[in-house]
C-alpha cells in the first residue's frame, strides 16, 4: 500500500509539472504538443549531469540535476517558440516534429557517448543508481518521499499565484484569450508568448528528469517517455487549464499509472485475472474516457493555436 501511494505521488508529480508547463504555454496562446519531446530532452539534460559528475554531494547533485533538466527543456522549447511565434508555423506539425526529434536526438547522442567510453557499448542507456539517492527527502519505513514531490507542490502553488495574482500572469492569459485586445493596451504579445513557451519548456524538462528517475535506476533513451507528455496534456484539459484542478487531476492519473507498476501486489487485483498489459493500457483508457466527458464544455484559452497577426482585428 505504501508503495502504491509512493508511486502515485511520484507519477502525479511528473504529470503535474508537465501539465502546468502546458498550462502556461496554452494560456499564452501557443499549443505545446512537443512536451513529450521536451520531457525526453530534459531527462537527457538531468541524466548527463548525473553521468558527468557522479560524485557530487547530495544537495548539489539535486540542484545541478534539476538545473540540467530545466536548461535542456528550456532551450529545446525555443524550437517551438521560434517556429510558432516568429514564423507562424503550424503548431501541431512543429510539436510532432519536436517529439520525434527529441527521442531520435537523445538516442543518437547517448549512443555516441556510450560508444566513445566503451567501443562495445552500443546501448542508449544511462545509469544513475547512486546518484539517484540524492533525490530522497525523507524515508519513513519503506515509504520514500522525494524532493521532487515537494518541488511539484511548490510549483503548483507558485503557478496559482503567478497566473491569478500577478500582473505578468494576467497579461499572459490575456494574450491567450484575445491577443489583439492585449496588444491594444500595450502588452507585447510576442514577448508574452515567448515567456509562456519557455516556462513550459523548463517545466517539461523538469518533469522529464522526475519521470526517468521515478522507478528505475537506468534509462534507455530509445524508449522516449511513452506518451507521458500527452497524458499530461490530458491532465491539463481535465483540469480545465486551472492549476488547482490540474493538481487534483494529476493525482487521479498518477494513481492509474502507478497501478500498472505494482498491481501484482494487490490480491484482489490479481484475482481479477486480467492480463498485465491491461494495466499498461489503463491510464490511456481512463484519459480517453475523461476527455470524452470533459471536452464538451472546454474552457480552453480562446486564441490558442492561432498565430498572432497584428493586422487582424
Amino acid at each position: 500500500m505504501t508503495l502504491l501511494i509512493q508511486y502515485t505521488l511520484i507519477y502525479a508529480s511528473v504529470l503535474l509539472l508537465v501539465a502546468l508547463g502546458g498550462c502556461y504555454s496554452e494560456h499564452s496562446g501557443v499549443i505545446n504538443l512537443g512536451l513529450e519531446g521536451t520531457m525526453v530532452m530534459g531527462a537527457l539534460g538531468g541524466a548527463l549531469v548525473m553521468r558527468s559528475f557522479p560524485t557530487l554531494p547530495g544537495l548539489a547533485m539535486l540542484l545541478m540535476t534539476i538545473l540540467g533538466a530545466v536548461v535542456f527543456g528550456l532551450v529545446y522549447s525555443l524550437l517551438l517558440a521560434v517556429a510558432a511565434i516568429n514564423f507562424k508555423a503550424d503548431q501541431t506539425l512543429v510539436g510532432t516534429a519536436m517529439n520525434l526529434l527529441g527521442t531520435a536526438a537523445a538516442t543518437v547522442f547517448v549512443k555516441a557517448l556510450n560508444m566513445r567510453a566503451d567501443r562495445n557499448n552500443v546501448s542508449s542507456a544511462i545509469q544513475y543508481i547512486n546518484q539517484k539517492k540524492a533525490f530522497t527527502l525523507v524515508k519513513i519505513g519503506s515509504f520514500e518521499l522525494s524532493w521532487f514531490m515537494l518541488l511539484a507542490v511548490l510549483i503548483l502553488i507558485a503557478a496559482h499565484v503567478v497566473l491569478y495574482k500577478t500582473k505578468f500572469g494576467l497579461r499572459l492569459m490575456a494574450c491567450g484569450e484575445h491577443p489583439q485586445a492585449a496588444d491594444s493596451v500595450g502588452i507585447n504579445v510576442l514577448k508574452m508568448r515567448y515567456a509562456g513557451v519557455l516556462i513550459s519548456g523548463a517545466l517539461g524538462g523538469l518533469g522529464g528528469i522526475v519521470y526517468i528517475t521515478a522507478g528505475v535506476s537506468e534509462w534507455k533513451f530509445e524508449n522516449g517517455v511513452a506518451g507521458f507528455g500527452f497524458l499530461a496534456l490530458a491532465v491539463m484539459i481535465f483540469g480545465q487549464w486551472k492549476p488547482t484542478l490540474i493538481g487534483a487531476a494529476a493525482l487521479l492519473f498518477g494513481l492509474f499509472r502507478a497501478l500498472s507498476n505494482i498491481y501484482s501486489g494487490f490480491d484482489f487485483l490479481v484475482n481479477l485475472h486480467l492480463p498485465g498489459t491491461f494495466y499498461n493500457m489503463l491510464p490511456y483508457i481512463i484519459s480517453l474516457i475523461i476527455l470524452a466527458i470533459f471536452s464538451k464544455n472546454s474552457r480552453a484559452p480562446k486564441a490558442e493555436g492561432i498565430p498572432y497577426d497584428k493586422g487582424q482585428r
Partner: peptide, 9 residues
C-alpha cells in the same frame, strides 16, 4: 525529424 520540423517553415 528535422525535415518535418523544416516543413513547418
Amino acid at each position: 525529424a528535422i525535415i518535418i520540423y523544416s516543413c513547418g517553415f
